[in-house]
């Protein structure tokens, strides 16, 4: 894997919110670097600043100070439209409870990011079907979310995240709403996707889930610490 210094780099990232007359600082200087092809999990309890961090990584929110460089682009300099573009091309979101649109079938749900990317209809359908096949749902393309099990829904959501071939897969508690068995299947899929070269950041509060990643960092009270010796020692 080639080393690219500007692939993913956060330097002294801070985020604070106004709280009455004062400001509440949620992130106290986060520094984190990632290389292409890494599989990182961010482990932390609720209230640790986890959600704030994932929003900033996912370009849904911007930091109060500090630098965030993703795929050579400084996120701080961007306006609303640029951020939308980054979210579309660079980031593949996977949410806790899949967040599929109930009125669209599996294929149309997967096509959604491609619509905003301006991909023409036929090409869109082809790529969506390809991704659904990749996650093992070739026989469920015309099914609506309500006709799919929780695990299947999450796999549709993964296909939707993958379909734009993003720089970064960003998963927020991807197994949070699943039972153990389907959760394990999703983790296996993540493993394969990482082996195929996808860079993954997974946020979780569950140590057993976090251990699936090749690298684990803790987030506690808005600060990141990295255990020596890798995930086994976490």
């Amino acid at each position: 894997m080639e080393a690219r210094p500007n692939f993913f780099a956060m330097t002294d990232l801070r985020k604070s919110y106004p709280l009455g007359d004062e400001r509440l600082e949620v992130l106290h200087g986060i520094s984190l670097t990632l290389e292409k092809g890494e599989y990182l999990s961010v482990l932390g309890p609720s209230g640790s600043g986890k959600s704030t961090l994932i929003n900033i990584i996912g370009c849904l929110d911007t930091a109060t100070s500090g630098d965030y460089i993703l795929n050579g682009q400084r996120i701080e300099d961007m306006d609303e439209d640029d951020l939308a573009w980054i979210r579309n091309r660079e980031i593949g979101f996977i949410f806790q409870n899949s967040q599929l649109l109930p009125r669209l079938d599996a294929q149309k749900n997967v096509e959604l990011p491609l619509i905003y990317a301006g991909v023409p209809g036929r090409e869109r359908a082809r790529r969506a079907r390809e991704m659904l096949e990749r996650v093992g749902l070739s026989d469920r393309m015309e099914h609506y979310p309500s006709q799919l099990s929780g695990g299947q829904q999450q796999r549709v959501a993964i296909a939707r995240a993958l379909v734009t071939r993003p720089t970064l897969l960003l998963a927020d508690e991807p197994t949070g709403a699943l039972d153990q068995k389907t959760g394990r299947q999703v983790m296996e899929l993540f493993q394969q996707l990482n082996e195929e070269g996808n860079t993954i950041i997974m946020i979780t509060h569950d140590l057993n889930i976090a251990k699936h990643a090749r690298r684990v960092v803790y987030i506690v009270d808005g600060e990141i610490t990295e255990p020596e010796g890798g995930p086994e020692y976490a």
Partner: peptide
């Protein structure tokens, strides 16, 4: 969700 998937405000 649509915004997270890259929909622009307009």
């Amino acid at each position: 969700l649509k915004k997270a998937l890259g929909a622009k405000p307009r």
